[in-house]
Design a binder for these strands. Structure first.
Lengths: 255, 255
DNA sequence: GAACATCGGTCGGCATTACCGAACGACAGT
DNA sequence: ACTGTCGTTCGGTAATGCCGACCGATGTTC
């Protein structure tokens, strides 16, 4: 296997850097962050600007992501088979459960939300599609971890971030939870990312039974769980039915 | 001005190619479409795959866009100042007009929709954010053309596509329409893209009065226009007020 | 207000880099 | 079983993009 194209890797690193900080970055910041010479970084940025992947503030000269990326991102949604086959089932699940439904796939050690159906009531909600959730503190992420879609090692070595006092930060805690998820076939997250919020998720399998993503419902903890903080069995049932239906659509034989 | 980085331009071309056709593409197709040797295209694709910009179907070996692009695309929305400053005004405009509101910016000879507020009634609507509209057959596009945000020349030379029998396809037709838009300060599109649909749009100005985008309302022709097919004055008023308000927020002094 | 620090941008020489084209192995259709 | 096509690998070559010093503008400090 020959080496990857250096300049493209660097360009991707620059784009990721611009995406991580949500403010505009100067040429010097970009260059030093990636250990590049200013001239080199400038050449790459100029090229990225030329193809509309980055824009430059004419006043300050600072750089930010460009418009072409938005179109590429939505084009990804259009061709994503997991998403397109899930849409109808996700709608139905939101209707049956009365809660918000989200679909996730792993990306760079996080969970990328690729579909989001709002809770059917008319409350104000923000679209999560494109957002990245933590693996260890979201129901979608825990399911993906449990079924080996994405490696666990980095999380077990470095202490993961604690969002609330319920977040599983100890490797053994997390490992035990993942074992349970494997046994049960579904996973939950109760106030581990945000107090008052909870979610449950189940794996989606593609051809050959390989887990390719996860689907979950989430909402206020009092609507997801009973008074003892355990997920409502009725929700689990409809969720797992949806996950199975999507898996079947994707070609997973007997799941 | 030194030359842009070749491999990055090629990588971007591959991504755009994958985004244009909404189906997966094989290596051979990619290579021949761009006039590259198979080996070259493979190296670039391998790199793009390595950074999650493209994915490869393990069964067929064909390539499609990757998940990282979705996150980059939404990150672009997060930092886009035109969008963030417009959100509140767009919401208000949708409420006052009772119609769907969209914000556009030019991209590659089309209009990129960067914000979309659904019509306030509860009908089923699909989110247009990230979609590309034609310049000559959308109200947003015509406004951007009229105010010189994007060059008109390519459209005037090549006959633009006719979506309906009302689409302006003759250069002189289009030129006259653009002149009117410049005079009036707003533009309309009545069944030029899709029969039964109409829209009106107004320019948004940034610092120094430069037009940086457009905002528009659109919906069924009978709700946008009067019986003679002319846009309702009340809609035009609230639309222009919103456009002015956003322009002021962006730093356009006296607009 | 003048000197300075910092910024984005430019340029030319060097050698690393990525390109090309042919050959390979797997697969599907015939 | 053969043949066409596919994605992939590989090595030679020179074109390519990288580096670091330099430039001019901007805004900051004393």
């Amino acid at each position: 296997m020959a080496g990857p194209v250096q300049s493209i890797e660097r360009a991707a690193a620059i784009l990721r850097l611009l995406a991580s900080g949500s403010r505009r970055l100067g040429l010097g910041e970009v260059a030093s962050s990636l250990g590049l010479a200013k001239g080199t970084a400038h050449g790459i940025l100029r090229t990225l600007q030329h193809v509309d992947f980055v824009e430059q503030d004419p006043a300050t000269g600072k750089y930010q992501l460009g418009a072409a990326l938005l179109h590429l991102g939505t084009s990804y949604l259009d061709v994503n088979e997991l998403r397109s086959r899930s849409i109808n089932w996700a709608d139905a699940l939101a209707a049956r459960s009365g809660e918000a439904v989200r679909l996730g796939t792993p990306l760079e050690g996080r969970v990328l939300v690729i579909h989001h159906v709002f809770r059917p009531d008319d409350t104000l909600q923000t679209l999560d599609v494109g957002a990245l959730l933590p693996l260890h503190a979201s129901s979608l992420g825990k399911v993906l971890l449990a079924f080996g879609v994405t490696p666990v090692d980095p999380l077990l070595e470095a202490e993961p971030e604690a969002y609330t006092r319920h977040t599983l930060v100890h490797p053994e805690q997390l490992n035990r939870a993942l074992g349970e998820i494997r046994d049960l076939g579904w996973g939950a997250e109760v106030q581990e990312m945000s107090m008052g919020e909870a979610g449950i998720a189940a794996p989606i399998r593609g051809q050959g039974g390989l887990v390719v993503g996860a689907i979950g419902v989430s909402g206020p903890v009092e609507r997801i769980c009973d008074t003892k903080g355990r997920p409502l069995p009725a929700l689990i049932t409809v969720l797992r039915e949806a996950a199975r239906a999507i898996s079947r659509d994707l070609g997973a034989a007997r799941w």
